[in-house]
Design a protein around this nucleic acid. Structure first.
Length: 548
RNA sequence: GCGCCAUUAGCUCAAUUGGCAGAGCAGCUGACUCUUAAUCAGCGGGUUCGCGGUUCGAGUCCGCGAUGGCGUACCA
């Protein structure tokens, strides 16, 4: 609230830009009718520069000017630059599948006549024989050859003068192999499928990091790794769903717009619902609504969805990210361990990477055994000194001091042990490890451990030094739940009872009885990062960026 | 938040001590019926991120700002 931007400066300039420049263009694009009608005036270069809504033609980069002129020539020569569709009998991949394994000798004529389409990524125009390489979405490429003999003078001349790298074109003809033995379509005709007005970037040098993110669509055209990432993430999502579905979990969707935030402690994004004249928040977690579903009898329930946290951004944190949360009635942390192993291993198999490289070069075999270790045990190992729930606060503080770990004054033993773990241990846990037996004070929504006083049934799955998924035997005592939420809310409100923001509908639901349950939440992007070794900005297709 | 580094043609990058702003790809004109980062000949393309300053002269030095990267801090 205090940090909300004032109603002026930051927003205003953007607004002006939108009004002046974007709107007229949107108008052209959105309405098919006017869109077509307005094609012609584009050539009207004399359109006085006073109409500031369109960049003057003369100011455009040379290569855009050239392509716009070609577009216009296409219109005038009766070859629409953007036809509704073009004939296409085979995907490039289909032809590759059919012919690649036939080992055709050079100069073969297959007798098969096809129409193919794709983006032009390579052009070789010689006098009487032209080569063009087409690429389709997954990166499959196929060459076409356009010869004077087969096309005739006019068609070939038009092709040479109107087709650029970056355009989508259709080529029909016979499937052949070239004199060099390359599978090709020997063209008898071509059509423009969609004219590109801007050049593709240099294929042979990687785009700068910023360009790759800002113009991901170009990264996808030019960079096989970017194409693979999109498909890897999709495969991971499919695998997660199928693992859960196979176990009888039911997928649900719960509201992204919330009245109060719960399930995590992060600063939310704020927005406004006009119909109720109500301030709303974007969810920071899925937990509370999924528990309501559990209360209602959706005994195995999960959601995969976007959550939003208004916090700092870095190579492992994004403002919006995908989360999987799953809750299982009559489950506990042990069933969550089994579920997580299935989920992670299933995802790894689905992308063919069950052994991945750790940050320190160590290999991580996800099919191998996963360790379970107590928090105090791990901290003791790191400190070479026995630490238990009985260790006095002052001793812990001395140990932290000796290792240069800074502590906050108000912390108790639980927080101090957790801090020691996070600073000294977490990043060293490369192999899959369930870190468990947390002090009650640092995991307020988990149930007490049945045999270890002061500890709760909760774990964090750590792989490659990164937290992948926390899980609890979920607290379902509505009285304690209310106490904890009140505590949390008071803390968040800075001790001001008036500013407390309790989720009463959730508490009321809890009072109707929630079955004993295990629950967990997994960062989907982090799983993809683990399986690919990429940073979070690579796993998110269009990460948030400041306006240019 | 703080610190360091970067920003030059459509893309990726050069530019010596402050002294005419360049290359490869891409583009344009021409040659070439087997190219595939083709080759050959010729040509065009710049608000050097923005605003100010120092200087005879600034891509280069100084100040402020913008954007990005890295580090660091904060973060159920």
């Amino acid at each position: 609230m205090a940090d909300a931007p004032g109603p002026g400066d930051g927003l205003r300039p953007q607004h002006l830009t939108t009004d002046r420049e974007e709107e007229p263009r949107l108008g052209t694009g959105r309405s098919t009718v006017t869109g077509h009608l307005r094609l012609a005036p584009m050539t009207d270069r004399s359109a006085d520069a006073t109409s500031a809504d369109q960049e003057p033609f003369e100011d455009l980069p040379e290569q855009v000017r050239v392509r716009r002129e070609k577009r216009q020539r296409l219109v005038e020569s009766g070859r629409p630059p953007y036809p509704n569709t073009v004939r296409r009998t085979h995907a490039l991949a289909e032809l590759r599948r059919t012919f690649d394994f036939q080992d055709l000798p050079p100069d073969t004529r297959t007798g098969e006549t096809v129409s193919v389409a794709g983006r032009v990524i390579h052009l070789r125009n010689t006098g009487k024989l032209c080569f063009v390489r087409l690429r389709e979405g997954d990166g499959t490429e196929l060459q076409a050859m356009l010869s004077l003999a087969d096309l005739g003078e006019e068609s070939l001349a038009e092709y040479k003068s109107l087709v650029d790298i970056g355009d989508f074109i259709e080529v029909s003809g016979e499937v052949v192999t070239s004199r060099r033995g390359e599978l090709s379509v020997q063209a008898t005709g071509w059509t423009m499928a969609a004219k590109a007005l801007r050049p593709l970037p240099n294929e042979h040098r990687p785009l700068s990091d910023e360009a790759r993110v800002r113009q991901r669509y170009l990264d996808l055209v030019v960079n096989p790794e970017a194409r693979a990432m999109v498909r890897t993430k999709a495969a991971v999502l499919r695998s997660l769903r199928s693992t859960l579905d196979d176990r009888g979990y039911v997928e649900v969707e719960t509201p992204i717009l919330q009245l109060t935030n719960g399930g995590a402690a992060a600063r939310p994004f704020r927005t406004h619902l006009n119909a109720f004249d109500q301030q709303m928040l974007l969810r920071i977690a899925l937990e509370l609504d999924l528990k309501k579903a559990l209360i209602g009898g959706v005994d195995r329930v999960y959601e995969i969805g976007r959550t939003f946290r208004n916090e700092g951004l870095d190579s492992t944190h994004a403002a919006e990210f995908s989360m999987l949360e799953a809750y299982e009635a009559y489950g506990d942390i042990e069933s969550m361990k089994a579920l997580l192993q299935d989920l992670v291993r299933g995802a790894a198999r689905s992308v063919g990477r069950t052994v991945v490289s750790g940050r320190d070069g160590e290999q991580i075999d996800l099919e191998g055994p996963w360790r379970s270790a107590g928090l105090h045990e791990l901290v003791s190992e790191a400190l070479q000194a026995e630490v238990t729930t009985e260790t006095p606060l002052q001793d812990l503080r001395d140990l932290a001091d000796g290792r240069g770990v800074e502590l906050q004054e108000r912390w108790g033993t639980g927080e101090v042990v957790l801090e020691l773990y996070e600073k000294l241990v977490e990043h060293t846990l490369i192999q899959p490890t369930f870190v468990q037996d947390y002090p009650e004070s640092v995991r307020p929504l988990a149930k007490p451990h049945p045999s270890k006083p002061g500890l709760v049934e909760a774990f964090d799955l750590i792989v490659n030094g990164v937290e992948l998924a926390p899980a609890y035997t979920e607290l379902n005592d509505p009285v304690i739940q209310r106490e904890r939420l009140v505590e949390q809310s008071l803390l968040a409100a800075g001790g001001d009872p008036e500013a407390m923001d309790l989720d009463e509908p959730f508490l009321r639901a809890m009072e109707h009885g929630m079955p004993p349950a295990g629950g967990m939440g997994m960062g989907v992007d982090r799983l993809v990062m683990l399986l690919t070794g990429a940073g979070i900005r690579e796993t998110i297709l269009f990460p948030l960026l400041r306006p240019e």
